[in-house]
């Protein structure tokens, strides 16, 4: 059956929607997941390099000292922290722990802030 509103407009401008904190945690989970997926080939290459020779192993850390690799490291650390924390939150909520709204809001805030703090700490340590 063709709906009578076939060519009808839809309101779906995401900038005009006020997202609750849970939605922020969720989109953060998704974005960090994509970043980690992009980082996966890099992790495989790092593994190969770390095992190939002592020189290659020792050269891994100085490589991170370059600004671009450092920035990438901070981004991936944020992504890993965000994804793992949000993931644990979801695993617990799946079995009913923290799934009432008030608790879910608190844990969403906690995940976002903790991941940000971990990324910030990594950045500070990298700069120091």
């Amino acid at each position: 059956m063709r709906s009578p509103t076939g060519g009808a407009p839809k309101f779906l401008n995401l900038f005009h929607i006020r997202f609750p904190i849970g939605a922020m945690a969720s989109i953060g989970h998704r974005i960090s997941g994509v970043l980690l997926l992009i980082g996966l080939p890099l992790l495989a290459l790092t593994l190969e390099r770390s095992l190939s020779s002592e020189v290659a192993f020792e050269s891994l850390w100085p490589a991170v000292a370059s600004p671009w690799w450092g920035l990438l490291l901070v981004i991936l650390v944020w992504a890993a922290a965000q994804h793992v924390l949000a993931g644990v939150r979801h695993l617990l909520m799946d079995i009913g722990i923290g799934s009432p709204l008030a608790q879910a809001r608190t844990s969403a805030w906690a995940v976002i802030l903790t991941a940000a703090i971990i990324a910030l700490a990594t950045a500070i340590r990298w700069l120091a």
Binding site: R30, G33, V34, L36, L37, L40, L43, A44, L47
Partner: peptide, 20 residues
């Protein structure tokens, strides 16, 4: 363990990517 780690990462990444 390392091979299992990458297998788990890939499987987990595959399901997430498929959802997206």
């Amino acid at each position: 363990i390392i091979v299992l780690l990458f297998a788990a990462l890939s499987l987990h990444g595959w399901i997430g990517a498929r959802d997206i």
